[in-house]
Amino acid sequence: MGKAIFKQRNGVLGVGIVTPCGFITPEQLCGLGKLLPEVGALGSKLTTRQTMVVLIPEEAFDRFVAGIRGLGLDVGVFGDVVRNVKGCPGNGELCHRSLGNVFELAVEIQQRYINQPTPHDFKISVAGCHRGCTDPHCADFGVIATGPKTVDVFLGGRGGSRRPQHGQKAYANIPKEALFVVLDHVLDTYRKLAEEHERLCNTMHRVGLDPFILPAEKLPVMAEEDEFADFLNS
């Protein structure tokens, strides 16, 4: 467990800033525009995980952290924990392609689970459709909306390493409300079954997918099918 603070080859610190799934307000952006020169930042880099790494001299660290917190931002997390969530801008106001309001869902997942301890780093990606702009197949826990109220869940993906792999579809068309029940179950099972520092895909390779699957009766029921049947008979 730790903070996203990385000493660079040239001695400066790379400090990861976490936002709600990459969303930064104009005020925060302007605030960063003022803060970075003030703390002598060398520059910043947008990351593939929707965070921003700012390069600052070590002695400016405390001032920098106080500054970003004043803007409603924070230092990201790193290590064997649930990382910040990657979420696409799929909601009622933004992306035209999105099948459901997943941006709000992704932000909620991040707020509830970020920094929880796990056997190895645990990455979550949420996408509003199968185009998968946030690479949900490459995350330990990938979520793809299949409709306004339903999602598919993929487990055990990883984008990096010498053996990158796509996640396996573990839950199809479950109601959004069931997602938190599923995520709790997956995390609990992973903590119980994983060997030390074992990535989820490797645990799944050893024990299979089954222990991570909750029986249907333990998931909240989706009303949609009955709803259409009622509509059909009306």
Binding site: L99, T146, G147, P148, E224, E225, F228, F231
Partner: peptide, 21 residues
Amino acid sequence: KKVASYVLTKKVTTIRQGMAM
């Protein structure tokens, strides 16, 4: 007709198990 009407009313793009119905 019911599917089309359901789409217009509920703003959905899929109906689970629709094919089976």
